[in-house]
Every structure is written in C-alpha cells, then in structure tokens.
Design a protein around this nucleic acid. Sequence first.
DNA 1: ACCGCGACTGAACGCGTGTTTAGTCTCTTG
DNA 2: CAAGAGACTAAACACGCGTTCAGTCGCGGT
Lengths: 246, 246
Amino acid sequence: MRSVDAAPEDAAEARGPVVPAPDGSTRGRILDAAMRRFARSGFDASVRSVATDAGVSAALVIHHFGSKDKLHAACDEYVLAWIRDVKRDSIGRAAGGNLLQVLSAADQYAPLVGYVLRSLQAGGAVGREFTEHMIADAEVYTAEAVRDGVVRPSRDEAARVRYLVYSALGAMLLSVTLDPPQDAEDVTAALRRFMDELYLPMLELFTEGFLTTRRMLDDYLLYVPDPPDGAHAPTDGTPHHDEEEP
Amino acid sequence: MRSVDAAPEDAAEARGPVVPAPDGSTRGRILDAAMRRFARSGFDASVRSVATDAGVSAALVIHHFGSKDKLHAACDEYVLAWIRDVKRDSIGRAAGGNLLQVLSAADQYAPLVGYVLRSLQAGGAVGREFTEHMIADAEVYTAEAVRDGVVRPSRDEAARVRYLVYSALGAMLLSVTLDPPQDAEDVTAALRRFMDELYLPMLELFTEGFLTTRRMLDDYLLYVPDPPDGAHAPTDGTPHHDEEEP
DNA sequence: ACCGCGACTGAACGCGTGTTTAGTCTCTTG
DNA sequence: CAAGAGACTAAACACGCGTTCAGTCGCGGT
C-alpha cells in the first residue's frame, strides 16, 4: 500500500508522492485533497470545498471519515507519518534543527510544509508534535556538536534548544503569517526568500554574538543563581563587573 | 446605516486620556467589549457574543459600527492608539525591542497584549503595524548601542534587526499558541513564564554566541559576497577549509 | 437470479452566523 | 404639544455550515 500505484499517478498528477502516498482508493483521494486544502486555506475550509477538490460529494467525505473533526485527525496522522518518512530518508541533512528548511527546499513537500505551518498557527496537534520532535532531535545534535567542540556548551542545554527551536520556527511562522504569498500557493518560496534574507544575521549572531560586554549575562547569573541543570555551575564564567573589550 | 462617522469620536480622540479609554458612551462600551472579546477568543468571536459582553443587542453593534469588519477595523485603530500612548509614556523602558515584555509586566495591559497576539496570529493589520514599529524602534536603539560600543556592528543592520524582532515575537507567539493558558484569560502570565524559562539561553546566545568556529559564517560570506551594506567587507575573518561538519 | 452490502449522491435538516426590518422608547427642538 | 431624531430591541431573513436521510448504482456471494 506504499507507492505501488504507478500508472495513473504519473500521467495526471505532476509527481507521484514520494512517501506515504494515499492508495488509489477514493478515501485516499479525499484524504489527500483534504490535507492540501487545509494546508492552502486553513482548517476553516469547508467539508464541501475538500469534497469538490476530491471530485466527490460532501456526504461521501462524512461517510468515509465520520465527521470533519475525524477527517482533521486523519490528516494529522497522515502528515505525521509522512514527516516521519521524510526524516528517516534524510537523516543528517535535517540535522541542525532546520527540518522545515530542508522540506521547503523541495517543492514536492510544499503541502507538507503548508500543513505544518497551518497547524502551528492554529495550535494543532501536528504543530505541537512537530515542535517537540524538532526539540528532541536538536537536543541530540547539539549534544554531539558540543562534544565535538563546534558548539559552545550551555548552562541549560534543554532551555537553549527550546529557545532556538521556538525562535527559528516562530520567526518563520510569523513571516509567512504577516506576509503571506499572494498566490496562496507555495509557502516554500516565501520560506526560502525569508531564509535568504535572514540567514546572514542568524549566522552572525551564532558565531559572533550580539553584545560586546558580559554585564547583562553576569548580572542575570548573579540574580538567578541556579539554572535547572546543576551540572554547569555559573562558576565557569566568573561574574565580575567590568567591560572586557578592546 | 449612515451613522458610522459620528461626532463623539472626534471629542474622544482629541482629548486623548492616558489610556485611550472608551468614554462613557454605549459605543465606547461596545468597542471596549469587542476588543477584549477578540483578544480572548480571536476574531471569529460572534457579533452576538460581544453584544452580550457589552450588555446590548447584536443589532445595536451593527447600528453603531455598520458591520463586523468595520467593528474589527475600529478595534484595530483603538488598540494602535492605545499602544502609541503606552509607548509615549514609557520611552526608554520599551527600548531593546521588548515592548511586549514591558506590556506583559503590567496586568492592566493584558487585553492589549492578547489583542496584539491575536492579530499577529491572524496576520491582521495591527500585527503587521506593531511588528514594523518594533523594527523601526529597534533600528534606532541598536544603532545607538553600536555607537556606544555595547553591541557589535552587523554587516547588515536592517536584516539583523528584522531577524531579532521576528525571532523574539515569533517565539512568543508560538509559545502561547502551542501552549495556551487554559484560563484563556491572561496571556501575560504565560508570556512571563515563557521569558523566565528562556531568558538565560537568549542572554547566553547574545553574549557568547553559539558556534565556536567561524567556518560557517566565513563560508557563507565567501559564497554570497556582498550583503546589502557594502561597508563591512568579509576580510576580517580568514576563510579556510578543513574537515566538513554541518 | 436474487440478495445484500458498501460506495456514492442530491436533497434536506438544524443551527449559527452577519445583517435587515419594523417598531418602541426617550429625549430634544420648534 | 407635536414632530422628529436617534438609541435601542425582538424578530426575521438569507446564507453557509456540518451532518443526516432516503435512495440509486454496481458488484460479489450463494
């Protein structure tokens, strides 16, 4: 039931889905249409609209999925399975915590990306789970990077990872929300444009930092003595109030 | 149906109290109720619900504002005027680009904060304008800070400011979206909690950076020769290629 | 050949929505 | 006082929504 369906897909639809493709069944067609419609128009899209997209009646959608909520849940599951597949197929490339970037690089994943963003926007299950997965992955990768000496250790690794993921994801979400692609079509292009613009300042910040003085950090460490992880005491950065600076 | 532009509006706007409080008029009460309802329940809240909140009939809401869209627009204007007031009264404190933090410190601004977040979430006019104002302010403040030597200069100041604002705002938005306060009431508490958790990694990143090596930045600068601001050449860092690690 | 069953549909139901209508009440004004 | 104007409301209207209903079609099993 994977990608066995070959003939009709190739001709009609531009590219056969690489991954958990809906089988040829009508139910699968409806599920796929629903996922794309939700990605494009948000979860307020009507059942009738996805029915039209799938070329069936609205009643049939309910017949197969029971209710709109269950259709939504089925889409969530479908998308999560798809994401799991993509991640398994591209381990390493999706490192660094920028899975969305990897996804937006290939247009075939456009509906996936759109769906994830819609779910993040609406606070749905997919958004939550996607975020937590990214945090979990990023924890592993940054731990490796710290061990290899290419990333500085943090006084609270978990908090840092969470901060980084929230910042990156949130910035993307905000960008496409405030300045949505007028084609309402591919968010991937918008995401790429966003990253082209903002990659340099991110890199700058990551390698050179932002502040020239340690004062704010030291003051904070003095004020709040113990971060959750007691392993790294604030003793490594000797808190003294002076500006070490050229 | 014509009564949209009324006289009392002029009076209220001209006086401009500390907070653009709604005058005693029924119209003002409706406007205030609508703003709070939209902040709490999003812009899908029904006209009838804000009418109930204001203690009037739904028809009267339409009678005073013409339509739901115009009510929404009036709320936007109302909130923007309020924000302008707050900013004028707390110049300096709202520096650094963390106006939302300042706002969430005082519970009296809870509906304001909620409204702004809802507008950011929905991509509304208030969200857009709020973001652009924050970027404009942050540009001024970081320019000062760079001149004073407490913040490192950037190869593209405008892009950096935009990146910082989008990251900060986006992270907050994502946080309250994915993990909304179950009371559906004060987002300010959620925002404070969010900042308590993530202030340390932010400070760490800003003073110490994230990467230990300049390789990624130098590679990028080599690959993309000229950032919009041609002032700072990438000559300061010597790019060298050794082993590869993302 | 018949039966049954699932896919499938057009039409309708019930509900909530934004908005309109017609009317009442209260005040101001000539 | 009469008349008008505006604040205000209950009721209704038109519409889109998710869902249900009754029925048709086609196909596999006995």
